[in-house]
Amino acid sequence: MATAFTEEIVDVGGAKIQVLKGGSGEPLVLLHGAGGNSGWLNYVRALSEKYTVYLPSHPGYGKSDRPEWLETMADLASFYTWFLEEQGLEGARAIGFSMGGWLASEIAANCRHAFSKLMLVDAAGIQPKEGEIADIFIISPAQVTELLFHDPKQAPEYESIYGGEPTPEQTDIAERNREMSVRICWKPYMYDPRLLGLLARVSIPTRIVWGGNDRLIPLECGQMFNKAIPGSDLVVIDNCGHVPQVEKTEEFVKIALDFL
């Protein structure tokens, strides 16, 4: 069973980037959200049985350097086109989660050969018309965790992810991640007004997946992504919050593998 993974540090334009890698098959790139790289969780393990999964920590997150010039989401997207090129990953399948969904759609809209298939999961990047994107910076990390789930009891990994006391190193990384998210997502908060217009340029098969009870980013944003990206479909997971890959792992993996 292809469940083992390795941790590598790769060099992109002089920046050292941490990449978790495992599995076998064609490449699949996972782009994490504002909370940072949460590691080789069950859903990643399941996906790595069919694909060679690449799970990098974005510049400024985890153990990855931040190049001095990288300060916006557009910078991050540019950086990733470089990363994909250097790592021979152009044309890979990709899944972007939350803020990583914003990143993935920004990359796909600006670079048509970056990915061959795209999945966006409870993605940031678009300003909702009716609701609001919850402000995760003005509340405590514990309050953010509470908002992520519709019902944490249905998430088998909840205890192992959030239960224990974090080590000083984990605390340090969590604060670094938060600071980097503030750097790139502060204003406008978690969206870019030009993205909605650019999404018409996304020309690859795209699936949008949303937790039906997402309290962080309203489902409305999923519908807007769906409408803006030609030929995309929208799959809503009922009784599920912002992180379906953790809260409804099995269902999520099935939806992902069906599409990919």
Partner: peptide, 14 residues
């Protein structure tokens, strides 16, 4: 007030 009010992420060096 909450810690985040007084010290938003990134406001104070570690």
């Amino acid at each position: 007030g909450p810690r985040e009010y007084w010290s938003p992420p990134g406001y104070t060096s570690r």
